[in-house]
């Protein structure tokens, strides 16, 4: 009997790896500018080949991220798998009540845990956080990349603000991804040292039943119906 099921398809895993590589590269080449007076940044800029090469690497991975985003939009719009995943990630009223029920459970006010479908409220939040972050970063990044063209339209204060938003938003995304997300999939005592889902795409039936009970129940009833 098969003890695990597919959680992420090969396509999704490749998308995820491209996303994480480009995010890491954008962070290490971008945050050094935000914290340019920090000795670690000074060292990193030297490692990255100087201020000019740093910019080039940043733009190359920006293009990779933009291409990935465009592909992702097409994927969720036009493929069955992509579309069903988008539907599974759409925030619903249940997510809000789940949050409060989980809180009540954690505080010992309620004995019952909320049951989750394929994506719980935190996973949805992370997905839409990445989407919102990418939109803001690509838009502000484009204004800064083509600064000589932007100057023809925007006043200087608007470009100053754009630079500031791009920098701070980068810091925020970095914190969310590298602290929050990495905790969930690496340091969390349930999965430590690492959840292997991002590599092999599978989740054990036990874990599925435990963490995504509604999806597990649906899967089981589908199997029964097949029989």
């Amino acid at each position: 009997m098969n003890h695990s099921v597919e959680r992420l398809s090969r396509n999704q895993r490749i998308q995820h790896i491209i996303l994480l590589v480009s995010m890491i590269m954008l962070s290490v080449t971008g945050l050094v500018l935000k914290f340019h007076s920090n000795p670690f940044s000074v060292w990193l800029i030297r490692i990255e080949g100087g201020i000019w090469v740093r910019g080039l690497i940043h733009r190359i991975f920006a293009i990779i991220l933009i291409l990935l985003s465009l592909y992702h939009i097409l994927w969720v719009t036009f493929t069955d798998k992509g579309h069903s995943e988008l539907m599974a990630l759409t925030p619903r009223g249940k997510d809000f009540s789940d949050f409060f029920r989980k809180l009540a459970y954690n505080l010992g006010l309620s004995g019952r845990q909320p049951q989750f479908d394929k994506y719980d409220y935190l996973q949805k939040l992370q997905y839409w956080g990445v989407v919102a972050g990418t939109v803001v970063m690509v838009m502000t990044g484009m204004i800064l990349w083509f600064v000589n063209q932007s100057m023809a339209i925007l006043p200087k204060w608007a470009i100053d603000l754009t630079l500031l938003v791009h920098g701070w938003d980068g810091v925020m995304i970095f914190i969310v991804l590298f602290v929050f997300h990495l905790y969930n999939v690496h340091l969390n005592p349930e999965v430590f040292p690492m959840s292997r889902t991002w590599l092999d795409g599978s989740i054990s039936l036990e874990q599925l039943q435990h963490e995504h009970t509604l999806e597990y129940n649906r899967l089981m009833s589908d199997k029964k119906n097949e029989k």
Binding site: N148, M151, L154, K156, W157, D160
Partner: peptide, 29 residues
């Protein structure tokens, strides 16, 4: 920056980000 227009230069240059300095960047921060 050949595209710098009269509209572009309407802003402060040495931007001091503080409560009493430039408001926009201060709010963002």
């Amino acid at each position: 920056h050949p595209n710098a227009t009269a509209n572009f230069v309407k802003s402060r240059v040495h931007v001091v980000v503080s409560k009493h300095g430039e408001k926009g960047p201060y709010i963002v921060r």
